[in-house]
């Protein structure tokens, strides 16, 4: 079990992590979802003992990362957001190095990384700097796993990786979870939230909700409309000025609209758009996804 209790961390006048308390169960695949600058990396660096919290306590499987950092470093596999293996060493040499540094061998824990490492093994003599983004990510994951950590801490592992590699990566995480490794991952991609057991929505150093992704979506009770219009910008301006508008924001090629009234229908919205001389294709009610929830939660706070 991992527990954060009232964690605070400031950098000069920026409150990077602001009173964060939450619990992650052993064996869980837990995601921190939030935009850049939400405080995810800061939180991770406090968990892996690289950063000392200003206030609050962290309990990592019964260890205190501040006092027992040596033990913590043995049981964590950390993959920083930026690729940070040795560019001038080959795949094999990087893995060998990290295995030795953790007092183990590649053979001993090969079963853990086999699925992942097999995919890059044909290129094992190639320097890490010359690998593609997806291969770099697999190597980094292998290196983070080689000492059989209890907790795998992945800071934005899919940033800058193509869609296929991203899906593959999440499949790998699912397999690792089945092997009993607790996985904590952060991502700015809302679509990845659905792949976690539970997620924490984070913004401006604060946690807005912690729940399974389905629960977060089901808690979203207000009717949500998607509006397909010709001119997104003009319509956005017009809807924002409407007295009943709760929130409206661009969502892909459409606009998502929330009304202050509970019983509003698509016709009412269409009538308003027509009255503003705005042409539209379609207005219809939809099921919110995690991104809508995130926007709703942070909108209420902001």
């Amino acid at each position: 079990m991992i527990e954060f209790k009232n964690i605070h961390k400031s950098f000069e006048d920026v409150h990077a992590v602001d009173d964060v308390s939450l619990r992650i169960e052993e064996g869980e695949l837990f995601g921190f979802i939030g935009p850049d600058g939400a405080g995810k990396t800061t939180l991770f660096r406090m968990l892996n003992s690289l950063l000392i919290p200003d206030e609050g306590q962290i309990n990592l499987f019964g260890l205190d990362p501040v006092k027992e950092y040596k033990k913590v470093r043995q049981i964590i596999g950390y993959m920083p957001g930026k690729f940070s293996l040795y560019y001038d060493l080959s795949i094999e040499e990087n893995l060998q190095f990290f295995a030795t540094v953790f007092g183990t061998t590649i053979e001993e824990n090969y079963h853990l990384i086999e699925d992942i490492y097999k995919q890059i093994e044909p290129f094992k003599k190639r320097p890490a700097g010359k690998l593609s983004g997806g291969m770099k990510q697999k190597l980094a994951l292998s290196c983070a796993l080689i000492h059989k950590p209890r907790l795998l801490l992945l800071d934005e592992p899919t940033t800058g990786v193509d869609a296929v590699s991203r899906r593959e990566f999440w499949e790998m995480l699912q397999k690792l979870k089945e092997k009993g490794i607790t996985i904590v991952v952060s991502t700015p991609y809302m679509d990845e939230a659905g792949l976690c057991d539970r997620v924490a929505l984070m913004q401006n150093g604060k946690i807005h909700a912690v729940a399974p992704p389905s629960e977060i979506v089901s808690q979203f009770s207000d009717p949500l409309y998607t509006i397909k219009v010709k001119n997104n910008y003009k319509s956005l301006q017009a809807l924002r000025q409407w007295e009943f508008c709760e929130n409206v924001y661009p969502f892909g090629e459409t606009l998502h609209y929330l009304d202050k009234r509970n019983n509003v229908s698509a016709d009412v919205i269409e009538a308003y758009l027509s009255s503003q001389q705005l042409t539209f294709d379609k207005v219809e009610m939809i099921q919110p996804d995690i991104e809508d929830c995130f926007i709703a939660l942070t909108h209420n706070v902001g």
């Binding site: 470093r73 043995q74 930026k82 940070s84 007092g103």
Partner: peptide, 13 residues
């Protein structure tokens, strides 16, 4: 600068 120190720092070295 490259960031490898970050990875080294979380090892028991």
């Amino acid at each position: 600068e490259v960031g490898t120190a970050e990875q080294i720092n979380v090892t028991p070295i």
